[in-house]
Design a protein around this nucleic acid. Structure first.
Lengths: 229, 229
DNA sequence: CGAGTTATCTTCAGTCACTGAAACTTTATG
DNA sequence: CATAAAGTTTCAGTGACTGAAGATAACTCG
């Protein structure tokens, strides 16, 4: 069994580099084409041809047409596992930390571009693509559900409960709500012409408002409960 | 334009009856076949053949293979619109009411059967089918997301906010979490051999525990926040 | 009841995502 | 360089889903 040497397995090597490059190229090309012509109007074979490979090769890299562009979400699951487990912060505080980190990633991506407005427009078009494509929204909500399962697991471990117990489940659902709110809020407030930092803090504000509500409880929902009884 | 007379449009008539019967027959047949052989092992054409119609006809009745068996969920959206809007109850109380109603529907369906254990086994197998079929889970979480949008809309109207505001969004996410918990809880506690009413109240208890948490706020999450600071 | 209108079903031909297997090419290793 | 491993292409196929045109059933009205 002539196997790969332990010293360089997994990282360097021309093979690995090519693979990462091709993966990125496929994803970027697909995003560009989907944005320009619409998700349904572009066949996987088209993306493949545009990258000079076979359709089969695309499916060797990505498990589905949707994953071609939604792959980026997968990073969040790790963040959930890492930060939610920290017992020195409340679950809501931990989630806010995760979301703030994502915000900073977005900020870095946008401000590092030559033309901020152009970068913003690109970000926004990608958001539009997701919003306008049922299959991508479905993919996203499926991902969110997996996130919720991860969160429930971590929270249960913190609290000495089982993941299937109602408290971690309910808490996970509420926390994942914050994630969605930030996503939606970014789409709302990040727009060309508006300063990036401005939009980001507007989004962060809305997330904080939501966080305050679920931290303090829906009993405080405006116009909600009859006070007495 | 010789159009249908107003007096009987939409309800009676042999045509409408046949249509409803065929729809039910397709759905039931599909559920039975999916449960027996697995979702992927049954082609839409198989379901069609078993019902003596063409594959094309199946797709005239249902927009997708998944909808063939997941159609039943759609009723819940109406309940959300109706009950969540009631301003005399808190959002959580209103949601509990909706969930309790669904519980009673399940109870009625199960206790009305000749053999309770058989009915329970059938219910459970259907739950297993959903749990074991990624495409059906995806369909369900997509449906849940639409529910959340409805809930956010209604809650925003109650509170004099816009549906996109963070409070209704966060509240809707938390409330929909309760729906999922009840679903999961029913699957856990409803099992052949256990009295139906027993399983139902166990499920109701878990939902109430979750409701208490989100009503009072995640600040009370066990082992959660450091008390001071 | 019979003719005409309309809704629905069937047939047919096609698109496209996705998969498995086998031949072939490129990269890594001794 | 020889050889193994990994990656790519080619090929052939499955199955969900769609549009269009013709056949059939059900409803309307005279």
């Amino acid at each position: 069994m002539t196997t790969t040497r332990a010293g360089q397995r997994g990282k360097d090597g021309l093979r690995e580099r090519n693979k990462r490059a091709m993966r990125q190229r496929l994803s970027d090309t697909a995003a560009r084409m989907f944005i320009e012509h619409g998700f349904d109007a572009v066949r996987v074979a088209d993306v493949a041809e545009a990258c000079g490979v076979t359709e089969r090769t695309v499916f060797n890299y990505f498990p589905s047409k949707e994953a071609l562009v939604m792959d980026r979400l997968e990073a969040t699951a790790d963040a959930l596992r890492t930060h939610l487990a920290d017992p020195t912060r409340s679950p809501v505080a931990a989630m806010l930390r995760i979301l703030d980190e994502e915000l900073r990633v977005v900020e870095a991506g946008l401000t590092s571009a030559d033309d901020h407005d152009q970068a913003l427009a690109g970000y926004r078009r990608f958001g539009d693509l997701i919003r306008d494509t049922p299959q991508l929204r479905a993919y996203q909500s499926d991902t969110a559900e997996r996130f919720a399962d991860v969160a429930a697991e971590v929270l249960a471990a913190r609290a000495g409960l089982r993941p299937a117990d109602p408290e971690p489940q309910a808490a996970a659902a509420a926390l994942l709500g914050l994630w969605r709110i930030q996503f939606r809020s970014l789409r709302t407030h990040l727009r060309p012409g508006r300063p990036i930092h401005d939009g980001l803090s507007a989004a962060a504000d809305e997330v904080r408002r939501a966080a305050r509500l679920i931290e303090g409880g829906l009993a405080a929902f405006p116009g909600g409960a009859p006070e007495d009884q």
